[in-house]
Nucleic acid binder design. Structure first.
Lengths: 140, 140
DNA sequence: CTCACTGCAAAGAATTTGCACTGAA
DNA sequence: TTCAGTGCAAATTCTTTGCAGTGAG
C-alpha cells in the first residue's frame, strides 16, 4: 500500500508538507535529523516549518511509515520504514546507510531468543555499524 | 578487567560519584535515563548532580563501559556494556529487560549482512521488544 | 600540594504546545 | 464549508558550558 493511502485510510489528509517530507526521506539513504529534513524540504516547499516536520514525523512513525533510529552521536534520525522488516548497516565514516532484508535468519534468531527468555517478542531494532566499501578502500 | 582499573589505566580518578553511577547501572536491568540515574544515585550519594551524571556517562561511554541505547519513546537510556556481546529483550508492558547472550547466531547473521552489503561490520545494536512472561500471563 | 572532578547556575539545543490562519476534502 | 493541518512564537525539556570550590592520588 502506498503511503498516501495509508494516511487517507487512517483519516489523515495528504498535504504538500507531508508529501515533501516523505519525498525527502525517500531520496535519502541516510537517516536524517528533523533539522536536516527541514532544510532539504524547504528546497521544494519554502514555507515548511520545523514544527510541521516534528509533527509529521511523529504521525508517520505512528503509522509505521518511518522509523526513528539511534545514530552514532546521540541523535534521533528518521528513515522511511519499508513494509516488511528491513535493517540498516550504517557506515561509521561517511554515515551512508544501506538497508538489507532480514530473511529467515532474524526470525530464527528471534525464535531462539524467545525460547531462551520466555518473552514473546513482537518487535525488534537492529542496526549494524561498520565501514562501507568506499571507506574501506579509502582506509586501505 | 574491573571498571575501576579501566578508569585508572586511562588516567581518570575513581570518585564516589562514579562509583554510585556505575552501581546504579549495575543494579538495574533496564536502560536508565540520566534523570533516573540521578534519582537512584542520590539514594546513595545525596549531593550527586545531574551534570555529573551526564559527564560521567559520557566518560564511561567513551571507555566503552556503558552503552547508550535507543529506547521506545525517543529517549537515550544507558546500560552497562558487558564485555562480550549481550543484548536485551525489553518488555513493552513493565519495562523489565533481560539480557541474553548472542551466540554464533548473531555472528552468522552479521557475516551474512556483510556478504550482502559489502560493508565491514564491527559493531551492532540489537534490541528485542515484546512481553515478558509475567505480562503475558496477566494479559491472558 | 595539584589538578581532575564536582555542583551550581546559566547558556544552548532539541522538542512540544497554544493559537489564529489556511487549505484539503 | 469545515475541521485537520500549518507556521510562528513561546514554553518545556534535554544537554552542555563556565567557574570556583573540593578531594583523590
Amino acid at each position: 500500500m502506498l503511503w498516501e493511502d495509508t494516511l487517507k485510510q487512517a483519516g489523515f489528509r495528504v498535504t504538500a508538507s507531508r508529501r515533501v517530507i516523505i519525498q525527502v526521506l525517500l531520496d535519502s539513504n541516510v537517516p536524517l535529523l528533523p533539522q536536516e529534513i527541514l532544510e532539504r524540504g524547504r528546497h521544494f516547499h519554502g514555507s515548511l516549518g520545523l514544527v510541521t516536520v516534528y509533527r509529521t514525523l511523529a504521525l508517520l512513525a505512528e503509522l509505521k511509515l518511518v522509523r526513528r533510529v539511534h545514530c552514532q552521536e546521540g541523535c534521533h534520525g528518521y528513515v522511511v520504514a519499508s513494509p516488511g522488516h528491513r535493517h540498516h548497516v550504517i557506515c561509521r565514516q561517511c554515515g551512508r546507510a544501506v538497508e538489507f532484508l532480514s530473511g529467515d535468519d532474524v526470525c530464527a534468531f528471534v525464535a531462539q531468543a524467545e525460547a531462551k527468555t520466555g518473552y514473546r517478542v513482537d518487535d525488534h531494532l537492529l542496526q549494524l555499524v561498520g565501514l562501507c566499501p568506499a571507506c574501506q578502500a579509502q582506509a586501505a
